[in-house]
Computed example of a mutant assay.
Amino acid sequence: MPIRAIVLDIGGVLELTPDLGTAAKWEAEFGVGWGTGLGEVFRAGELGHVTLEQVHEQAVGILGVPAARFQAYMDEMWVEYLGTYNRELADYWKARRAEGYTTAIISNSFVGAREREEEAYRFSELTDLIVYSHEVGLLKPDPAIYELCLDRLGMRPEETVFVDDYEPNCAAARALGMAAVHFQDTAQAIRELDALLQ
């Protein structure tokens, strides 16, 4: 069955997001490990169980730091989160859409991401569907988030290819019958996509 839809991850794929050392820098200032209750707060943010304001309030309470300092951390975190736009891959993807392929995004995201990514990169203009974890309450590699995307697209797994920089997320897609490309660099991903689309 020919592939009809190209589904991309965002972080590490459409956005190139090297580790800028933000977490390590702020952990040193805050004086606690990120596992001290903060992991649950941030996971809740990834699943959309809390608002961004609640993330701030809860984190400030756990850390015992001034709200302005946590805001400064979050400001730097968003810079690292957004990374830089992978224009070469985005242009390739846009061209395939112009040829008739359906395009979609599945992203493990964080509350506030849609607004920031839309302002920075206008993903909604490139794709037919965006599935954000914080909006649907599911995280990759949970099969349910892929199934939700397929259902909204009206596609069978065999008609889709998924691209992600984290191999377990690719493995989960393959287990459902989707083709998958493990993104390591842009040229490699485009080569593998071309081979699958021919």
Rank of each mutant, 00 (worst) to 15 (best):
E115N: 06
H134R: 04
D165Y: 08
F70K: 01
Y146Q: 06
L82I: 02
G83E: 11
Y166V: 11
E99D: 15
C170R: 11
F70L: 12
I106H: 03
E119N: 14
E147A: 00
T102E: 15
G154L: 05
S133M: 09
A72W: 06
Y92W: 15
F110E: 10
A98K: 06
A104G: 11
T160L: 02
G61Q: 13
F162Y: 15
M155G: 05
T160F: 05
E88K: 15
D142A: 14
A172Y: 06
H134A: 12
D165L: 08
L63A: 03
I106E: 04
V131H: 09
V65H: 00
A144H: 08
K140H: 01
A67Y: 10
D91H: 01
W93A: 06
A67L: 13
Y92S: 00
L82Q: 12
Y73E: 07
R69A: 08
E125Y: 12
A90G: 07
V161I: 14
T103E: 10
A104S: 03
G64F: 04
Y132T: 03
A104N: 09
S107L: 05
A113V: 01
G154F: 02
V163F: 12
E80K: 02
E99T: 07
D142L: 09
A120I: 04
C149V: 02
D151Y: 00
Y101L: 13
A120P: 02
F162K: 03
E147G: 02
E158W: 15
T127C: 14
T127Y: 11
I62Q: 02
L139V: 01
M74R: 13
F70A: 04
L148I: 01
F162I: 04
E117H: 15
R156S: 14
W93C: 04
V131S: 05
E88H: 11
G61H: 12
E117L: 15
E125F: 03
L153G: 07
P66N: 05
E115C: 07
G137S: 03
I62R: 06
E118C: 02
V60P: 00
Y85I: 08
I145S: 09
D164G: 06
C170T: 00
E80Y: 03
E80T: 08
A90W: 04
E158F: 10
R116W: 09
D165Q: 09
A67C: 05
V161P: 04
S107A: 14
V65F: 02
C170D: 09
L139G: 04
L89S: 04
R87Q: 14
D128N: 12
L89F: 04
G61C: 10
R122S: 14
D142G: 07
R87P: 05
A67P: 07
H134L: 11
A67F: 10
Y101C: 03
F110H: 13
Q71E: 14
R97Y: 03
A144Y: 01
R96I: 07
L89I: 08
V163K: 13
F110V: 03
